[in-house]
């Protein structure tokens, strides 16, 4: 159960809409069934009052929608804002998008909402909530309720388990997981780090698309290329695994890279601080030599 009711949030949003301070509200809309919740933009108070919900099924991270939403002429024209509800983990994604200049901060009114963890339609909590890394909203204009703390989670345990495998075992593990991929692109489309104007997989000139379908290794290439593309920018929001219809633990690829970077360059959480320089796009004289980094990676053979 969420500590904050839908009612509370509707009141906040309705007031802002009525005052004209914001011209739209980005939130969650109820569906036919209680688990059937989708992200939606509300522009009138009636719609908001009738359809907005904040329940245990509001796992969707809304920050990515702002990239396209804030580009729309209606916001640009009158310099009005869009109000968005962000859960603590979503605020990291939002900050990361600000760092990459993907969202105009002054066009967004952020309302940070506490979260008690979200569940799927079977009632089971999502992996990203079981291993929640932070209850602390890192950016907001308005905070509902109390802000929480960063959690010392066990999110790297599973990565360590896979690291401990032999190369053959590990290959078999990923072969088994990734062979289920149906290339629906849901992981890419939901990922807040995947906001490129043109994705390399949609660009014939990149030469990657034909790589990703050339042989049986297709799905692995797609996911490995994607993991590298978001390396250093992935906030570990866990959306990729949440939306995967084939239940592939895609977050483990990203987490492995996060873990390696933490070990090689010191702890870094993407999105924790706006404008922070991720270790991969930063240089300091104390950086370890690449050969050393490979050594530190351990059983990577």
């Amino acid at each position: 159960m969420q500590a904050i009711s839908s009612r509370t949030l509707v009141d906040i949003a309705a007031k802002k809409l009525a005052s004209g301070e914001v011209s739209a509200v980005l939130g969650w809309k109820k569906g036919l069934f209680n688990y059937d919740v989708t992200p939606a933009v509300f522009t009138d108070e009636k719609d908001l009052a009738e359809n907005f919900v904040y329940t245990d099924f509001c796992a969707a991270n809304l920050s990515k929608y702002l990239v396209n939403e804030t580009k729309k002429p209606e916001y640009r024209a009158d310099n009005r804002k869009i109000l968005v509800f962000l859960k603590p983990c979503d605020t990291y994604s939002f900050n990361q998008l600000l760092t990459e200049h993907r969202i105009h901060r002054n066009r967004v009114y952020v309302v940070a909402v506490p979260c008690n963890g979200m569940i799927d339609l079977t009632g089971a909590p999502y992996e990203k909530c079981v291993n929640c890394k932070s209850k602390k909203a890192v950016v907001y204009d308005e905070l509902v309720g109390e802000n929480g703390e960063v959690i010392d989670s066990n999110r790297f345990d599973e990565v360590e388990r896979i690291e401990a495998m032999s190369a053959e075992e590990r290959f078999a593990f990923w072969q088994n997981e990734l062979s289920r991929c149906i290339r629906c692109n849901a992981c890419r489309n939901v990922c807040p780090a995947c906001t490129c104007e043109k994705c390399v997989f949609d660009n014939p000139a990149s030469g990657l698309e034909n790589k990703a379908i050339s042989d049986s290794f297709e799905e692995k290439m797609f996911h490995i290329i994607r993991a590298f593309h978001v390396a250093g920018r992935c906030t570990d929001c866990g959306e990729c695994s949440r939306v995967c219809p084939q239940h592939i633990p895609l977050h483990l690829l990203n987490r492995k890279l996060i873990k390696d970077m933490n070990e090689a360059y010191g702890e870094y959480q993407a999105g924790a601080v706006e404008g922070s320089r991720a270790p991969l796009v930063n240089y300091s004289e104390n950086d370890i030599e690449p050969a050393e980094a490979v050594g530190k990676g351990g059983n990577n053979a």
Partner: peptide, 15 residues
């Protein structure tokens, strides 16, 4: 320019 996201990654690594 049609593909550039303006994300600043390139600026940060340019020596």
């Amino acid at each position: 320019e049609m593909m550039c996201n303006g994300c600043s990654s390139c600026e940060r690594v340019c020596p």
